[in-house]
Write a protein that binds this DNA or RNA. Sequence first.
DNA 1: CTGTTAGCGCTTTCAG
DNA 2: CTGAAAGCGCTAACAG
Lengths: 363, 363
Amino acid sequence: MDNAPRKAPVTLHDVAREAGVSLATASRALNGSERKVHESYRTRVVAAAARLNYTPNLSAQAVAKGGTNTVALLVADIADPYFSSIAAGVIRASEEAGLVVTMAVTERSTARELELVRALRGQRPRVMILAGSRSSTESDQDALISELQAFEATGGRVVFVSQHELPFETVAIENAEGAKQLARDLVGLGYRRFAAITGSRTLLTARDRLNGFLEGLAESDIEIPEERIVATEFTRDGGFDGATTLLEQGLDDTELIFAVSDVMAVGALSALREAGIVPGEDIAVAGFDDIPTVRDVTPPLSTVHIPLEEVGRRAIAIALSTEGDTTDTAKTTDTTTVNATVNATVNTAVKTTVVLRDSTPSR
Amino acid sequence: MDNAPRKAPVTLHDVAREAGVSLATASRALNGSERKVHESYRTRVVAAAARLNYTPNLSAQAVAKGGTNTVALLVADIADPYFSSIAAGVIRASEEAGLVVTMAVTERSTARELELVRALRGQRPRVMILAGSRSSTESDQDALISELQAFEATGGRVVFVSQHELPFETVAIENAEGAKQLARDLVGLGYRRFAAITGSRTLLTARDRLNGFLEGLAESDIEIPEERIVATEFTRDGGFDGATTLLEQGLDDTELIFAVSDVMAVGALSALREAGIVPGEDIAVAGFDDIPTVRDVTPPLSTVHIPLEEVGRRAIAIALSTEGDTTDTAKTTDTTTVNATVNATVNTAVKTTVVLRDSTPSR
DNA sequence: CTGTTAGCGCTTTCAG
DNA sequence: CTGAAAGCGCTAACAG
């Protein structure tokens, strides 16, 4: 157990000495944005840095410039394809913008989320992105909001994913519209009797989708009886349980089950099959999100497509484009008024499109 | 576009003044590990901090103490369930240890990986975890290795996931053993004629699994004809393509297709089905990893279970337990000799277990 | 353009 | 136990 001849990391100082220039010059040559260093010096410095294998200490840079190039990303569950796809978008867009992503998972708990936001604030990130459908009720909510507002007050940007109703920028997703269109299309296919599996009704996303779906049906004077709408966990197992519950109640003449998310729909599919019911034949199933795996389940699932990675990219685009204006609570009333220079589409809702597959054959 | 009354963040200084104590005392009361501050002071400081909603500036702390509490995690593709599950484990374990996780995706490119490692080194992370089966050939490999060794030389820990053959600590996974056992079990089920879909043979993980499988078959004097082994991308689409290729060649009397990863197996399943072949009936399929979705495809997939989240946790456990000893290249020859105090199981390979499901009925 | 010199926010000797 | 002061590595005025 020989203990550490732990070499000290190379510092800018070392590079400067090696190159025979001053600290400042070395700094300018290596990291200072504008070109203001004589070429001969610059090359010497760069060479010295390479020779010593120098890497600037980001923390030191951060403290010196009073700001980082960090994006803090909070997701409910990184193993859930919905979030991991969004995360992929956030990470890619961040890398393209030269930002480093820091990540934390909330386990779907608002309390945990609050803790994490507090902790991550210490990073002094430039942007904080919160993706993870949260309940609109919990009391921690208020604390979360004020914590985030404090963060914004110091110049940070907060962007939520699909959380209108909160006083922050958000990547809006056409949840209601998409679900409504799905309903219309399904009715067009000949379906008339529906059941639904939804998450907690306090989950904004789940609620929006369910309501949109119901509205879509209402256009054709179709309703879903109260007992045919079951609320469960917003997960694969929740979907499984929801379908099981429906089964126990007796599906009667139900023709189609709408699950408010694909992971739930996939769970439902398995529950049905285990019960000896063939989805797509005995009963139709539709989901929402269009996560990659729905192409590979049997039958392939009809759903509403969301460009998930785009959602992630959009989040950072919004953050970056609103940087600078400190309308304190950025999204005041009609303030979709972004930085004039900004691609106007950035602040419009992400489009969703219905994708009909074999799980909802026309009848 | 009113510009920023950007409040300056609260500093320790502010807290100290508010509490009427010195900077040093405030520091000790809030972050200094040991209790060496009088209770009355401590409470005043804590109260002041709360009142001002103070959050320590992590960057400043890092530069002052000359080290961070950061874990840098590199994965090939965060949207892939294999990696996102591992990431979930890394993140959870890190949070439990009070570490912040920084994440980057390599897109399966060694060049990109090298870039990222360079960039992330600037963070001065305590640990760097690289998960993402890399090819054993590419030349960037050497650069990567020396970059990582430089990182270790300054006290950082590097942990790979499933990359023996590299001069670093690694979370070993029983890839070969698992595949071998799978082969045995399948033979036990009555299968005799196999085909395989594998990733590039330079991908260590893919190679280990294929070889293990072949060895398992060899024990029963079974071989897979060369043309029945197709190498494709290590992705869902790769699996799809692989099955398609096999189909074009003619499956003849092939009874079972082994794909070296579940995502590939799932893609293969879809290719077969699209070709009108019913997996589980017309032909059996088996995968490797036991990602969550394989329970929900049809038929449920036989595979080799890896406790993916555990792999992630293990990575940080190894990193933390080896901190301190700087055997320069930690894993010299037989050096499984960890810190005496460490849970010995940390450095043993992660166990895999065969899980037989309906995709491989006994015949 | 280049070098000197203050800091940035926090920790940590080193005296009191 | 507490406070003053010296850094940590780097940037950013400020003079030359």
